[in-house]
């Protein structure tokens, strides 16, 4: 079926599939029908602009959101948000959330018997600067067990929520840490079939981002695919 609106082009292969047998929860939640490829209309080609009004002080420093210091290894996570055309995505919202240094989420349904940290919630947000740069200060999250299969452990990760210039670029993903031995056996990470594509989710240790005596640094650049419309005349 090809028309001016619906295209016969196959879905691009780099994203994970909806069904990935080793990740149990996909079985009943992944759609069975193949999505139709839609040529975006104006609704899908508009971008949401959030602005600074709802960003508060320390939203980008997860170690300063409570009266005391959180436990764990303090880190800086920083990089750039770009379109696949290489242009920076400026003044756009980036949200993160993560487990604490024991691998426990500040969520009422997380029953992992690791301690909560009263000085760490694990949610952050910031706006990119004029060059698409972002920077968070946080605590390195720990790996945590989950019920997917016997002795299943998620590699340490930070969840990222990203907005591009338009709706079709909307992305939620997870950033991993270099050298983590759990990545190789993680069904979620390995739902991405091409190892070179999976490698794009692994941050790089970077001395330049460290705060001497205080925090190690990880660099992670994000490229939003989807359409990259030229600004409308």
């Amino acid at each position: 079926m090809a028309s001016a609106t619906i295209l016969a082009k196959p879905e691009h292969e780099e994203d994970p599939p909806y069904h990935h047998g080793s990740y149990q929860s996909t079985a009943l939640r992944g759609p069975n029908k193949t999505p139709l490829i839609l040529r975006p209309g104006r609704t899908e080609n508009h971008g949401a602009v959030f602005g600074e009004s709802r960003i508060r002080q320390n939203d980008d420093d997860l170690t300063r959101q409570h009266p005391g210091d959180p436990l764990g290894e303090k880190i800086v996570v920083s990089g750039r948000l770009l379109g696949s055309d290489g242009r920076p995505i400026r003044n756009q919202l980036i949200e993160i959330w993560q487990a604490n240094a024991s691998g426990r989420y500040a969520h009422s349904l997380d029953d992992h018997p690791a301690p909560l940290d009263p000085n760490f919630t694990g949610g952050g947000r910031t706006l990119t600067d004029s060059e698409g740069r972002y920077r968070f200060v946080t605590i390195k999250p720990a790996a945590y067990p989950w019920g997917n299969h016997p002795n299943a452990w998620r590699p340490a990760h930070i969840h990222f929520s990203l907005f591009g210039r338009v709706f079709t670029q909307r992305l939620i993903t997870q950033m991993y840490f270099p050298g983590d031995p759990l990545i190789d056996d993680d069904p979620i990470a390995n739902s991405i079939r091409d190892k070179r594509v999976l490698a794009r989710l692994i941050s790089a240790f970077d001395w330049e981002l460290t705060i001497p005596g205080t925090a190690l640094g990880y660099r992670w650049d994000i490229i939003l695919g989807g359409s990259n419309p030229t600004p409308e005349a």
């Binding site: 780099e14 994203d15 994970p16 990740y23 929860s25 990089g79 750039r80 770009l82 696949s84 290489g86 969840h159 929520s161 990203l162 992305l171 939620i172 993903t173 997870q174 979620i188 990470a189 739902s191 991405i192 070179r196 594509v197 999976l198 794009r200 989710l201 790089a204 660099r219 992670w220 650049d221 994000i222 490229i223 939003l224 695919g225 989807g226």
Partner: peptide, 12 residues
């Protein structure tokens, strides 16, 4: 930038 192509999706 350190990346070579679009960042892939992962579950929320």
């Amino acid at each position: 930038n350190t990346q070579s192509g679009p960042t892939p999706s992962q579950t929320i």
